[in-house]
Design a protein around this nucleic acid. Sequence first.
DNA 1: CGCTCGTTTGACACGGATCAAGTCATGTGG
DNA 2: CCACATGACTTGATCCGTGTCAAACGAGCG
Lengths: 238, 238
Amino acid sequence: MTAPYSLELVEKCTNCAWKAAGFFCNLPVPVLKSFEAVKYTSSYPANAVLFVQGQVPRGVYLLCKGRAKLTMTSAEGKSVILRIVEPGELMGVNAAFSGKPYELTAETLEPCQMNFIPRDAFMQLVRKHNEVSVNVNEQLSSAYSAACLQIRSLGLSRTASEKVAGFLLEWASKGKETSQGVRMNLPLTHEEIAQILGVSRETVTRALTELKSKSLITMKGPTVVIRDKSGLEALAAA
Amino acid sequence: MTAPYSLELVEKCTNCAWKAAGFFCNLPVPVLKSFEAVKYTSSYPANAVLFVQGQVPRGVYLLCKGRAKLTMTSAEGKSVILRIVEPGELMGVNAAFSGKPYELTAETLEPCQMNFIPRDAFMQLVRKHNEVSVNVNEQLSSAYSAACLQIRSLGLSRTASEKVAGFLLEWASKGKETSQGVRMNLPLTHEEIAQILGVSRETVTRALTELKSKSLITMKGPTVVIRDKSGLEALAAA
DNA sequence: CGCTCGTTTGACACGGATCAAGTCATGTGG
DNA sequence: CCACATGACTTGATCCGTGTCAAACGAGCG
C-alpha cells in the first residue's frame, strides 16, 4: 500500500494498535469484520475538505489518526467551529440518519487517516448490529455533551477572557501534568480559537496576552503550560 | 387513576393517541410491551423540576404531553436554555449513558405527562432491543442538530435583532400558515427567549419592539404572526 | 384591592468588533 | 544566498451595541 502524506496506512482493523477505549471501532471481532468489509481506508493531507455543508450525504467518516474540525459557515463567510474531532470519532452521522444534506463542513487540521463507510452500508450496520448502534449512541451522546458545554460558554460567559480561560481549562484535560503545571499542545491558530469561542481573532490575542501577563500561563509556539490552574478557574468562573 | 393538575393520565402505551412520528415510543408492539413493563407514568404541574444539574442520574424521562426546558446554570445564577423539549422526546439520556451527574437541569413549562424509566432498565432496553437503540440514535441526532443551530446563532449572529429574527423563523416551522402569514404560539417569556439567545431580557424586548415597528411581525399575548417572512429572513441573514 | 410577575422604555458606561499598521517566522523563486 | 511573498500574531485607536441600573406600566390573581 502506498503511504502518501508520510502516513503509514493501517488497513486491518482487527489488529489496529491505535484503537483505544471510546473508539467507535471498539467492537467484538465478528462485528468488526462486517465493519471492515464495507469500509474504505484513505489518508488526507492537512486542510483537506471531507465534506461541505449542503452536500447530499454520501456516508460517514471514522477518524483513525489525526485531527479534524467541524464548522458551520454563514452566508457572509464567517464560520463557527462546532467541534475538534479526535481519533476514534465519527463525522457525518447526523446527515446519515436524517438523509438531509450535511449541515456542517469537515476539514482535516493535520495529516489524517480515515475510514469511509457509505451511508447505506452504515445504516445496515447500525440496524443489524446492536453493538454498532450502542457505540453510535455513545458517540452522539458525547458530541451532544460537548455541544452543550460550548453553548454554555457562548451563552453565559460575560467577557472574552472568561471564554478563553474556560477553553484552556477544557483542553487541559488532554495535556500532561508536569512540575511546572499542565503542559499541553494547542494545534490551533488564534483564528480557529476565535471561531470556537465566537469572538474576533484580535480579541483572542489580547486575552492570551492578558493571561500571560498575569503569569497564569506561558506559551511557546503551539505549547501551552498552565502555571496557575486555580487562578485560571477563578477567571473562568461562569 | 387520579388525574392531578387537570391532566388525564394515559397509562397504556400500546393504544396511546398522542404518539406520532418521531416519538421515541414509536416501537414495535413486543418491544413496546417491555418498555411499558419498566416505565412509571406520572404528571407534573408547570414549573416542576425533574432533575437538577449535578444530581446522580436516576434514569431518563420521556415527555408524553406538555413542554419542558433544559438549562445549564452558572455559579453566579445566570442560566442558558439548551433546548425546549417537545412531546415524544427523551430527557437525561446523556447522564444515563455516561453515568456521570446530570449536566443540565430539566423543568416543565406547562402541566406535563411523563414516563420515567430507571437507568438500569433503560440501559437494558437499549442493549437488548435494537429498535430502542436506533430510536435513541435518532433522538440524540436531532438534539445534536438543534444544538449546532444554537451554536451557530450564538457564534455567528452579529446583533441581537439577528438572533431574535432567526429564533422566530425557527419557531415558525411549528406554526400554522394563514392568510396573514405564519401564526404561532410562543409560550415563552422574554426572559426565557433571552436565555436561549444569550442576550439580556431587555434586549429581547427592544428587538421585538423593533420588529413590530417594522411591521415584520405582530404580537398579541403569546401569539405571534409573521407578516413578512422574507423581511425577517433578510434581517436574520447569518 | 394590592400583590406579583412580565414587560416597556430611558440613560449611561463598557467591552469588543472593526479598521489599520506593523512584527515575526516560514517558505519560494530568482 | 538573498529578495520577496505569505500567513500568523501583535498592538493601537475608534465606534457601536448591548449589559446594567432604574423607574414605571399593565395584567392576572388571591
